[in-house]
């Protein structure tokens, strides 16, 4: 870690800021973070609890709110596993094999992050909406995708599509194929190699991707808003429920429900922090073993 040559104390001092500059920089940064991050977060909880705990709880256990929470959980419970399986498959193909067009494939996987959530909703309306490609057929068979739960799930799958794959691809590329090749040569079957070698190696990256994917799945607003139809108790997710309450000037209730989502965000950040910490620890241990 420490370089062999120690610089003179003079050089060290000259390459650092004076105390005044230092505290001025820290102060400015903290003011910026306070205004844009801390205050909005605090505002959600303060406004949600302003009218007392009873009002807060009533807003959350109200039937429409509960239905919204259920739909949000259901959507995430479908979208996250789907994109998890995809992420693992994509990372396996991309990181463990070489084939032409690989970099194009990686770029295509990133596409949903570049697309506005509103457009993510729009494209499914164009396909499954009343006037869309399959609109007439769906109508004939009495099936509904747009303005119904399947549309919400589809739009959510789209916007959370790259999360797990993006975490796993660079991680698995960096780990190479030697361990898996050794296992295969020693007679392990494909799934055995995957469960015993690959998965333990990438578990923190995988968890990290799942956490981010889940947060986005539960919090998505724009895409879901386009395909939902905003039917209370039926096609409202929690973020949409917050919007409706807010537009009806039920601010205390809106912020009470919003505080649940803010809590989810805080749990996400805490888990993310924990996973990053563990991943760093593991990496250090691995480095120590090899050095």
């Amino acid at each position: 870690m420490t370089p062999a040559v120690h610089p003179s104390p003079l050089a060290k001092r000259a390459s650092r800021e004076s105390g005044v500059t230092r505290w001025l920089l820290i102060g400015t940064a903290l003011v910026f973070l306070t205004v844009f991050l801390f205050l909005p977060l605090a505002f959600v909880f303060v406004t949600g609890l302003k009218k007392g705990l009873a009002v807060y709880l009533a807003a959350i256990v109200e039937p429409d709110a509960l239905a919204a929470i259920r739909l949000t959980l259901l959507t995430a419970a479908i979208a996250v596993p789907l994109n998890l399986v995809f992420g693992v498959a994509a990372a396996w193909a991309i990181a463990k094999f070489s084939f032409p067009g690989k970099s194009v494939l990686i770029t295509l996987i990133d596409l949903p992050f570049a697309v506005s959530p509103v457009i993510a909703g729009l494209i499914y309306v164009l396909i499954f909406g009343l006037q869309g490609w399959f609109g007439a057929w769906l109508g004939d068979h009495d099936m509904k995708i747009i303005f119904a739960v399947p549309g919400i799930v589809l739009a959510t799958v789209f916007v959370t599509f790259p999360f797990v794959a993006r975490e796993l691809i660079p991680l698995m590329q960096a780990q190479g194929t030697e361990q898996e090749e050794a296992a295969t040569v020693l007679g392990a079957r494909g799934w055995q190699t995957f469960w015993r070698i690959t998965l333990p190696n990438v578990k923190w990256g995988l968890l990290y991707g799942v956490i981010l994917c889940n947060a986005r799945a539960m919090g998505e607003f724009g895409a879901v808003s386009v395909v939902s139809g905003h039917i209370r108790g039926l096609t409202n997710t929690l973020p949409l429920h917050v919007e409706i309450l807010y537009n009806e000037y039920q601010f205390a209730a809106a912020f009470a429900c919003a505080s649940l989502l803010a809590l989810l965000a805080l749990v996400t950040l805490a888990l993310k922090f924990g996973v990053e910490y563990r991943a760093r620890e593991t990496r250090h241990t691995v480095q120590e073993i090899f050095e």
Binding site: L33, L37, M218, F221, P239, E243, A254, A258, L261, L264
Partner: peptide, 16 residues
């Protein structure tokens, strides 16, 4: 906290 905008649903950020 820097990652908060990644984790906080946009509608919540909007009303806050």
């Amino acid at each position: 906290l820097v990652d908060l905008p990644f984790a906080l649903p946009t509608a919540v950020a909007g009303i806050a």
